[in-house]
Design a binder for these strands. Sequence first.
DNA 1: CAGGGGGACT
DNA 2: AGTCCCC
Length: 614
Amino acid sequence: NRTREESHGEQEDEWALIPDHHQRTILHVDVDCFYAQVEMVRDPGLRDKPLGIKQKNLMVTCNYVARSLGVKKSMWLKDALEILPSLVLVDGSDLTHYRQFSSEISAVAQTFTPHVERLGLDENFIDVTDIIGDYLNNSEIEGHVFGDKDDNQVHHSDPCGCGCYTRLVAGTHIAKELRQQIYETTGITCCAGVAHNKLLAKLVSGYHKPNQQTVLFPWQVHEMMKSLNLTRSIPGIGSVTYKALEDLGISTVQQLQNSVLKLLMTKFDQETSQKLKDLSFGIDKTPVRKSGRPQSIGLEDAFRKITCITAVRVKYYTLLERLLKLLADDGRIPASLKVSVRKFDRVKRFGHRETKQVPVSSSVFTMGVKGVNEDTKSYLMNMIMGLFHKMVDTKKDFHLTLVGVGFNKFIERAQDAQAISNFFSKRTRQQTDDQNSECKDSNVTKRTKFHHSPTNRKVLESFTAESSMVSSEENSSRFSSDEDCIEENFKDIYENPALLGTHINLEELDNYKGDKEVEEVIENASETRKELISPEIKMCVSDDRSCSEKSACIRLPNGIDREVFSALPGELQQEILLASENKQNPKVVKQGKVLKPKQTNHRKSNSVNSKTIK
DNA sequence: CAGGGGGACT
DNA sequence: AGTCCCC
């Protein structure tokens, strides 16, 4: 009972000859201009205005008021404002609220069935095959039907004979109900597509926009696929695959349908070749996979130009602070840290990133009764900078247009966590003669094992809270298993101990009473703070315009964005200014005992290395 | 400055 | 770690 066109494949094309019985019923739900809707729900005053959501210089989406006035998705901000000067803009760089709405929407779908697969923040595939029985008594179709009206009226029952007609009609009722519930719980409107596979459901969901739905019956598949014209409009055929096909003289879906598998196999392996052909016929056997929680959590910041190491540190530090909040919300313990950069490249322009990763010890996130604190941040910062230096040779000129940081593996199950924590504590015992290892071991075990418990949740949440610094001794045992990493990655800070002082939370000073060397580092830093960050100057720094009129203004180092600078915590502002000062006036900074005793053994010089500051 | 994510496969 | 895909 497959459609005729599905048999047009080559004889050797075995997969294509397997009939598609359309046994499944799949929904694709796609939120209308997602970011714009979220902002309109959050501020109903925006409803009637032309609204654009921007990220940097790009308007990533806009509401339908704006669209009716000639603005399109993914326009340059400049172009959008030229067309529509009255466009109201909201910055959508921080995805926090979008993530929240997104998971609420998926959660509504999950009340129907667990078979929900997320695609990006605003799309969900739902396999409703399991629950279709509850909806079979509906005879009327909800929403639109793809294709010619007359054509569909011919088939008023189930011409296919496999029961797909009845199931798809039932699917339209589920889609209707789901969209209604999403609207009631979140205030967000969606489109939906109903079909017998993911490809088709997705293709058809956008046929009537916004806030509408469409069903596709199998006998319309051929017409639908032909109407796509270019192969590029098939999900799964991206720019690279499209160009490869183009090289073979295949540009349209029809050409792909008529292509010979052997020709495709000159550019793709057999499996891929077959998949491409299947797609052109609207055949897609891929299952709807439960999405579960994200497998990575990361943040990026793009910009036009960063050329100095201090700015890099500032960017990573800022991203890391936000990332730790996301991590605390997530509740899981990460096992791997990934750092990325995008180097300026005239040819590639964008898209390409270089990345490096390292395992991170789970103890970094679980040790310490008072939770993870500033110290964890600087530990991770050193990891980050270590990876960064593997990608960028800061002794030479460099030009970055993006930095990113993320966690991409998580300790999932109690058993795994147990094994991992045992592994770490074992290593620690062998390598150090740590009397406290018993205590640490039990800490790790307990926390990791129950990392979903409320108690542990609290520990995680305290990442971001101001909390007290642990003693140096505790530090050394906590991180000793990552010794190798620290030695490599701490290099930057070794070379400029004055920077270290600026990392210290001023509220934690009491912890260092009596430690002369540490106090000295801190004093250095606090003097710097007093000198450079007086309230007046802060005001000046935060306002570009007033700054240009005042003579007392701080002159920021080249490459430092004033807006970025003013948004930073004082300690990082100091770091920048200090670094810039040192650049012009390299001076010797007296060495102090630093936070992690291991370092002192490896420090080679007391002098500030102006090269690292660039 | 396409942005700010994410996933699967190799 | 890189490539390709998706939104």
